[in-house]
Amino acid sequence: MKKSLSNKTIQLNYFSRFAELTKKTNEAWSTEAVTVQELWFELDAQYRFEQEMSSVRPAINHEFCDWQRVINDRDIISFISPVSGG
């Protein structure tokens, strides 16, 4: 897939530790990141998540996705830290 450097505005939703670290439950974010992996590095640099990427799962538009998933304008994106339900 051809990579685009176009700017996108996405919505980020934060939960549990990530909500506490960012002090936000959501925010609009402008990015040139092409994949969710690139976006993770961008956010990690901003907020210092202190969480191994291997223990995190990305989600786009309320479904899990892989790290190479391409971001589109207006996507809703979350990073899921280790879960502990039950």
Partner: peptide
């Protein structure tokens, strides 16, 4: 327990800080 995005924060009777279970960092 493995897949669903639900997080449990534990609060303790001793002096330790509350912890998101599964996370390494108290908060």
């Amino acid at each position: 327990k493995l897949r669903i995005p639900i997080w449990k924060k534990e609060y303790y009777l001793d002096s330790t800080a509350p912890l998101w279970v599964g996370s390494e960092v108290a908060g």
